[in-house]
């Protein structure tokens, strides 16, 4: 079956809608970076980048790039008024010290106990790039995941137990996929919202662990 669901931009808008003014937020490399553009202009959310930025702004206009101003994905960015620069040890003190309200990461797999696998594609890979993923996953106050619901081959990415090497244990509290918004609770995955074109039965078929229905689901 085809299950296109929400576009990445729509996923980003859903996550952005849940971020209140005043939060300090780190957006992982990849799909989560789209969230930055989805935050309304009149809501002050302070974006953190591991390489030493708070108050990160959007990409500069072409020709206006500053060679010394990049984000953790090594893309040129800008800095908002009120922004700050700091060194790597301070940057990760913010992360590990629990000062970051939210980190949104991509994932290979998320388990129903909140385990996250998002850094290495196999145990055999001898040179995987971990970057700041483990620090963010272990240190942020909340870790949300933004990912396609299944792999390109249709295999579930939301599972009972991760098969990929773990990034951190029991840290993910919410997942936004192209098909559904799911909370990770002590009881397992709880469906909060879903795309209108997919039935709960089909969603359960594409999910590798039991999916509890919450009262609030818009069916």
């Amino acid at each position: 079956m085809s299950a296109a669901g929400w576009s990445r931009r729509e996923m980003a808008a859903r996550v952005a809608a849940e971020i209140p003014e005043g939060w300090y937020v780190n957006l992982g490399i990849g799909i989560p970076t789209l969230i930055a553009d989805a935050i309304p202009d009149d809501r002050e959310v302070v974006l953190h980048s591991e390489n030493g930025l708070l108050g990160m702004g959007p990409a500069p206009e072409k020709g206006q790039e500053d060679p010394w101003l990049i984000n953790a994905g090594k893309q040129h960015v800008t800095l908002h008024k009120g922004g700050a620069f700091f060194h790597h040890a301070d940057s990760f003190a913010m992360i590990r010290g629990g000062h970051i309200d939210l980190c949104v990461l991509g994932a290979y797999e998320v388990a129903s106990n909140g385990d996250l696998a998002n850094w290495a594609i196999s145990e055999a890979d001898a040179a995987p790039a971990v970057g700041g993923a483990m620090d963010l996953a272990a240190g942020a106050k909340r870790v949300w995941v933004m990912t396609e619901h299944t792999t390109r081959d249709g295999a579930p990415k939301l599972v009972e137990q991760c098969r990929y090497p773990l990034t951190a244990l029991g840290v993910v509290s919410r997942i936004c996929t192209n098909l559904a918004v799911i909370d990770v609770t002590p009881a397992g995955f709880v469906l909060r919202d879903k795309h209108q074109d997919i039935s709960i039965e089909d969603l359960r078929r594409l999910t590798g662990a039991s999916l509890l229905a919450a009262e609030t689901v818009h069916v």
């Binding site: 790597h88 992360i95 590990r96 483990m134």
Partner: peptide
């Protein structure tokens, strides 16, 4: 891990021989 790398360097500069971190556990 990037933050552990930064903190291992910070510790070296600050005379701290080792430290406990939640990063990477498990």
């Amino acid at each position: 891990p990037q933050g552990t790398l930064a903190e291992r360097l910070r510790a070296a500069g600050a005379g701290i021989p080792a430290f406990f971190t939640p990063t990477g556990y498990g």
